[in-house]
Computed example of a mutant assay.
Amino acid sequence: MHRFFAEPGNIGEKEIIITGADVNHIRNVLRMRADEEVLIADGRGAEYRCKLTDIGENEVRVQILWKLDGNAELTSAVTLFQGLPKSDKMDFIVQKCVELGVARIVPVSTKRAVVKLDAKKEQTRLKRWNTISESAAKQSGRGVIPEVSGVMTFGKALEEAKKLDVLLIPYERAENMAETRRVMGSIQPGQSVGIFIGPEGGFEESEVEEAVAAGAQAITLGKRILRTETAGLAVMAMLGYLLEE
């Protein structure tokens, strides 16, 4: 069954109005017809099973059949602070981390990050990344569309991260797997979690020291050195295993 998102303000007691790019997708790509059933999420966790009633050029109207009880979100909101990678690796990171349950992704400019985005390039990339996030949220049955925020400096990201309950920074020099198991196993449902992942080449030691001073806990992901596009996925998979109800 196809799945779409609708603005909360367009959701009534008995009817939902779909606007934006999904209208063209329903009308011209999928060529759907009245009476076909779809799933509609409001981007905040609520989801509805609906029946198409009117497919117009600028909006699609659906009748609410019933509100669903299921919730595909993790019990903790996880923010990924991702060092800006080269090429299109960020596209992959956004897609897969959204599938794994991340709540927010923050691109971070670090000392070893090769990529430098001016204002125009940043806005173009952000639009693309948020489109990928929405698509991945639909595909994976999420009730929320995770936001990919504007690029932050490492210092600004640390200030933002201090608002969270638990901060983790995978680091290749961290060696105590037992301690990593203890740290990750101690995360409780409902706690907010931040993950710092470096770009190609990782973090400089001074950045790790800054993060630890700000409350982050250095953890190991094993004896193998993971690529930047793999490390965040590994942590998200571990958290999903620990937090999934």
Rank of each mutant, 00 (worst) to 15 (best):
S135A: 14
R227L: 10
V78W: 03
F154T: 01
V144D: 04
Q191I: 07
R44W: 00
L68Y: 02
T180K: 04
N28L: 12
K127P: 01
L68H: 05
Q95R: 14
E159L: 12
S186V: 07
N24K: 13
R112T: 04
R125P: 02
W66D: 13
K51F: 00
L84T: 02
A103C: 02
E57N: 08
E13S: 13
I187Q: 12
G150K: 15
G201S: 04
T230C: 11
I18G: 02
V148W: 05
V94C: 10
S135W: 00
M236D: 08
V60S: 03
S192G: 09
R173W: 13
P199E: 14
M32F: 11
T153L: 13
S206N: 09
V78H: 00
T180I: 05
M236V: 05
P189N: 07
G143Y: 07
K156S: 12
K51G: 03
E47Q: 11
L233S: 08
G56E: 08
I11Q: 06
K14Y: 12
V29I: 11
E179G: 06
R49G: 08
A216D: 07
G83L: 05
Y241W: 06
I55R: 02
I55S: 02
E205G: 07
V94Q: 12
A34F: 01
F203R: 14
L65R: 06
V62N: 01
R61L: 01
V208Q: 08
H2T: 02
T124N: 13
V115M: 13
T19M: 05
V102W: 12
I187T: 11
S140K: 03
G201N: 02
W129I: 00
G143L: 04
E15H: 06
T131S: 15
E99Q: 11
V94L: 06
G232D: 11
S133L: 03
E134I: 00
A213W: 06
I225K: 13
V78N: 03
Y241N: 04
A174Q: 15
E159N: 15
Y48K: 00
L65N: 00
P107N: 04
A218T: 05
R142V: 09
P8W: 03
T180P: 06
F81H: 11
T153M: 14
